[in-house]
Design a protein around this nucleic acid. Structure first.
Length: 451
DNA sequence: ATCGGCTCGCGCAA
DNA sequence: TGCGCGAAGCCGAT
């Protein structure tokens, strides 16, 4: 009966078994279909023939967040509410501190069990810990984001892609399976949830967030749009992925990372569809490597290295070499504001910053270059990391993602990388420069696109 | 165009 | 204990 691999599931907090509705506290995986956490919650309802509800908790004063990110997320959630209705599953949008808002909901509705999804970030773990303390019912966590569950594939910080890769590949046959379908719940069973009637527009306008970073219109939010984007990518761009993905002047990337970040599509669904496309090329291989290995490595980094957003989280060789070069003369030193306003001496870097600010998505290759230069032109590696994370989280639509933290740490702190020839400022951290860009793509064309 | 060296440390073979 | 090799590179020699 239970079709869900138990290695995806962890009991965060045990409690009294009782009857009453089961809730899925949706957080990282904001979709109805292909969602192991929702499926697990639905399975739990079968034991007592209980009802099922989905709640999402909005933290309304996430100060560094912007309407660009919240707007995208809220529109996606609006779709979730609509889609859930087809399955007779009520959806509630709660607001406030999770341990307050969710425990209130639990008490008011006599909830019998809580299910949430997995997230390696510190803040999410704190939320769960605080909620656990207030509960006396079972509280489960299901890894609905990774194909091979993060906690199962490895129990320690992995040193690089090459150390986690064999572990993932060994387990893929067990975990890369087809999803069961979500089932319709019984209608009108008597219990009515006092769900907040979701007035999306009103909620949108009353958040205590940054409204100055504007929403973007080149990508449409939501689970349905994500599916379209996936099929569009498979049909139009997968074949040339390997050749074009590192050229920021070409439309060669999948553009799925934003949907993946908000959980509007599942990585497992993407992998399954790519496999079904029967296109076993170098491109498929390269894409699956990024989708699976690199993404799971980021989760591993953030979960097992709680210093994932600070200098302290860098590997020893990198800390040593950066320390040795602390006093090196910098040719240019810019402040956070100067970086933010794209006011460096280098037109290429400024174009990258403008792409980030304008579109909410800096091209993958340029993201590396962009962060490397922040290291080169900041007064210290700590400052560089701080600036890159600040700008990434503020302007990237998928800011605050483990991929972002891992990316900044890779660029500035040698995380998951190796030592290279020493040079000023960088020490043995891998160096990238303008000439490399010139070798790889039409720099002038790129600059033209974003200035 | 292509190649080796740069340089560190993990994981595995022995 | 030794050895191969790694998330995206750079540079100079050929």
């Amino acid at each position: 009966m239970n079709l869900i691999n138990q290695h995806r599931v962890r009991l965060l907090q045990d409690g009294k078994k009782k009857s009453g509705p089961v809730i899925y506290w949706m957080s990282r995986d904001q979709r109805v279909h292909d969602n192991w956490a929702l499926l697990f919650a639905q399975n739990l309802t079968k034991e007592n023939n209980s009802e099922l509800a989905v709640v999402f908790n909005l933290v309304p004063d996430f100060l560094e967040a912007t309407i660009r990110q919240y707007g995208f997320m809220l529109k996606g959630l609006e779709g979730v509410e609509k889609e859930l209705k087809k399955y007779h599953i009520p959806f509630s949008l709660l607001q406030g501190k999770p341990e307050v808002a969710i425990s209130k909901f639990i008490n008011e509705n006599n909830v019998s069990a809580v299910v949430s999804d997995f997230d390696p970030l510190k803040i999410k773990r704190i939320w769960k810990r605080n909620l656990s303390k207030k509960l006396n019912i079972p509280f489960y966590e299901v890894d609905a984001h990774n194909i091979v569950p993060c906690l199962y594939v490895s129990q320690k910080v992995e040193f690089g892609a090459y150390t986690i890769r064999p572990k993932i590949h060994r387990l893929l046959p067990e975990f890369l399976d087809e999803f069961p379908k979500i089932k319709k719940m019984e209608k009108n069973t008597g219990i009515t949830f006092n769900a907040i009637q979701t007035e999306w527009e009103k909620i949108r306008s009353k958040l205590k967030i940054n409204y100055s970073v504007k929403e973007v219109d080149w990508i449409k939010p939501g689970e349905k749009e994500a599916q379209k984007a996936l099929h569009n990518f498979i049909q139009e761009r997968l074949d040339n992925y390997d050749e074009l993905r590192n050229d920021p002047t070409k439309n060669g990337q999948s553009d799925l990372s934003l949907y993946l970040h908000f959980g509007q599509i599942s990585a497992q669904r993407v992998a399954l569809e790519i496999q079904k496309s029967k296109n076993h090329s170098k491109s498929t291989e390269a894409f699956l490597e990024e989708l699976i290995v690199r993404k799971e490595l980021s989760d591993n980094f953030c979960y097992y290295n709680q210093k994932y957003d600070s200098f302290e989280g860098f590997p020893d060789w990198a800390k040593k070499t950066l320390n040795d070069h602390r006093k090196d003369k910098r040719d240019f030193v810019y402040s956070s504001k100067q970086f933010e306003n794209a006011e460096t001496h280098e037109v290429l870097w400024n174009a990258a910053q403008k792409q980030l600010v304008k579109t909410g998505k800096l091209h993958g290759y340029m993201r590396m270059y962009w962060a490397k230069k922040i290291l080169e032109w900041s007064k210290s590696p700590e400052e560089a990391l701080k600036i890159s994370i600040y700008l990434n989280d503020k302007y990237e639509l998928d800011g605050r993602d483990p991929n972002g933290y891992a990316g900044c740490a890779w660029s500035i702190g040698g995380v998951h990388d190796r030592a290279w020839t020493g040079r000023p400022v960088y020490g043995k951290i891998r160096y990238m420069n303008y000439n490399g860009c010139k070798r790889k793509f039409d720099v002038k064309g790129y600059i033209k696109m974003f200035s």
